Amino acid sequence: MNNHTNDDQLELIQASHRELEEALETLKNLKPDEREDFTKRWPSTLQSLCELMRVTLDRQAVSNSVHISEALATTLSTYLGGRDIYIPNGERLKDALRDIRIWREFKGNNLEQLSRNYDLTERRVSQIIAEQRAAFVARKQRRLF
Results as ranks from 00 to 15, higher is better:
residue 89 N to A: 15
residue 138 A to C: 04
residue 74 T to M: 01
residue 2 N to K: 10
residue 134 A to V: 02
residue 21 E to P: 02
residue 106 F to S: 00
residue 27 L to P: 00
residue 36 E to M: 09
residue 133 R to V: 05
residue 38 F to L: 07
residue 22 E to V: 08
residue 118 Y to E: 06
residue 110 N to A: 04
residue 52 L to Q: 14
residue 137 V to P: 04
residue 53 M to K: 12
residue 60 Q to P: 05
residue 55 V to T: 09
residue 12 L to T: 13
residue 144 L to C: 15
residue 98 R to G: 03
residue 102 I to T: 02
residue 80 L to N: 00
residue 91 E to S: 10
residue 95 D to T: 11
residue 114 L to H: 05
residue 91 E to W: 04
residue 144 L to Q: 15
residue 123 R to K: 08
residue 93 L to T: 14
residue 119 D to T: 10
residue 59 R to F: 07
residue 55 V to C: 06
residue 144 L to E: 13
residue 67 H to D: 13
residue 117 N to V: 09
residue 106 F to Q: 02
residue 38 F to Q: 08
residue 110 N to Y: 01
residue 135 A to G: 03
residue 45 T to I: 13
residue 49 L to D: 04
residue 122 E to A: 14
residue 90 G to Q: 00
residue 103 W to P: 02
residue 143 R to T: 00
residue 74 T to C: 00
residue 78 T to N: 01
residue 109 N to T: 12
residue 107 K to R: 13
residue 71 A to F: 04
residue 31 K to A: 14
residue 1 M to H: 03
residue 22 E to A: 11
residue 50 C to A: 15
residue 19 E to F: 06
residue 102 I to R: 01
residue 96 A to L: 13
residue 59 R to M: 08
residue 54 R to T: 03
residue 140 K to C: 08
residue 78 T to P: 00
residue 53 M to I: 15
residue 111 L to N: 15
residue 42 W to H: 03
residue 51 E to C: 08
residue 38 F to C: 07
residue 25 E to D: 15
residue 123 R to Q: 13
residue 127 Q to N: 10
residue 40 K to G: 03
residue 92 R to A: 12
residue 62 V to T: 07
residue 124 R to M: 14
residue 34 E to G: 04
residue 80 L to Q: 11
residue 30 L to T: 01
residue 7 D to S: 06
residue 68 I to A: 08
residue 105 E to F: 13
residue 22 E to C: 03
residue 67 H to L: 12
residue 14 Q to K: 10
residue 69 S to Y: 01
residue 26 T to H: 10
residue 34 E to W: 04
residue 16 S to E: 15
residue 68 I to G: 06
residue 52 L to R: 14
residue 13 I to Q: 07
residue 90 G to S: 00
residue 41 R to I: 02
residue 105 E to S: 15
residue 50 C to T: 15
residue 12 L to G: 03
residue 105 E to I: 05
residue 20 L to T: 02
residue 124 R to A: 14
residue 69 S to E: 04
residue 128 I to Q: 01
